[in-house]
Nucleic acid binder design. Sequence first.
DNA 1: TTTAAATGTTACATTTTTGTTACAAACTAA
DNA 2: TTAGTTTGTAACAAAAATGTAACATTTAAA
Lengths: 226, 226
Amino acid sequence: MNGKIFIIEDEPSIIQLVQHNLEKNGFIVSSSVNGNDGLKELKKFQPDLLLLDWMLPDLSGIEICKNIRKDNSIKNLPVIMLTAKGEEEDKIKGLDSGVDDYLTKPFSFNELMARIKAVLRRSNPNTVSDNLEFEDLVLDRIEKRVYRDKKEIQLGPTEFRLLEFFLANPKRVYSRDQILENVWPNNINVESRTIDVHIRRLRKSINIQNKKELIRTVRSSGYSLI
Amino acid sequence: MNGKIFIIEDEPSIIQLVQHNLEKNGFIVSSSVNGNDGLKELKKFQPDLLLLDWMLPDLSGIEICKNIRKDNSIKNLPVIMLTAKGEEEDKIKGLDSGVDDYLTKPFSFNELMARIKAVLRRSNPNTVSDNLEFEDLVLDRIEKRVYRDKKEIQLGPTEFRLLEFFLANPKRVYSRDQILENVWPNNINVESRTIDVHIRRLRKSINIQNKKELIRTVRSSGYSLI
DNA sequence: TTTAAATGTTACATTTTTGTTACAAACTAA
DNA sequence: TTAGTTTGTAACAAAAATGTAACATTTAAA
């Protein structure tokens, strides 16, 4: 993955979080905290996609979007709009102001990632790769296969999702709660110990002889790759 | 089928639709929403055919076409022009500006496909094939026949469509929903178990002794070839 | 109309996946 | 060290997904 993404969002903590995660996924990211600066920097940066906050201190997201559609040099830039919950969602749904997709805060990073990929795939099919890789581990989302050291490994559905989740941000430590939220279907209640068991199953599957352990336990925090 | 097609068209929804369908039919597709960018990207992409909108925000289709015919490196690129209904059709008919064929919007995808094939067959006979192949499996769309290991196999209509669908992207895992959407006539409601049964029928038909199973079940995800 | 083919559905057997528990082992802090 | 906490592991039962055959209904063909 190697696209460029620009963010216009006035909440620094969101920028930081999203930017950090996107960069880990191989994107090149730049950002701005208000609309006017954003529009200027946008043109310099030439992104493949724009993440745009709905409420900004100066211009609204809608206005920015209209400006973009009018400007020939960036007319076709795909835009994903970010809205706070309840913040006139319907309007956005209704308007075809050229927004390619929108997302309601708070959103999970996985969801954002999925949308980004969908939008990029539409506009620029070569930007997105559907393989997740980490060291000698390869996960093919299209064919739903996993390889370690070029040899295929059989995983159950939950193990697959679990690994997919970790691979999006290798090395990052996830708490059991975070894992639960992102890997299990919504609103499903499972004991937190369940995760340990699945981790154990995943470990069993992806470990091969003479190769190092890939899943790290961080006591009282959670798990991560490497 | 393995040609590369480039699209210059300012209406994203048309691009999306056409691109998606062409890719399903095995073409590699790239696109641009305006003339100037299009001309540049065209040369990089080296397509076997160009779908060109008549009305574009910057250059007109005609101008683009003239540019192409002047440029030695892409001089012979076949072009199919797309025109909105009533949009000076006659002019196009009359002019020999090097357009190989033209099509009036709205057009059916089947019609587009037929023209593309016709044009490609003329210019580059090897690009077009109406056979889908995968390993020792051959599906002939014209004669509606299927062969495994050179021996003909009898399939029911649904089995045929099912196999045709899988063959467009072998190895790719499709969910039952995706299969439903693409193989069954629109808006038809069938139980998702129905798919399993048809898969089973297809399997029964295409499996021959001593040959490996061709349809893979991916538990909780769907099915794929190989 | 009669007959055969194609299709959708259901029921049941089989296999796989999953969640939970119980206990052992490892770790931490006092 | 020891007590308390956290994690690893195996086993088991319950739930879910899939394969298969049989049957009823629809559609097409003769």
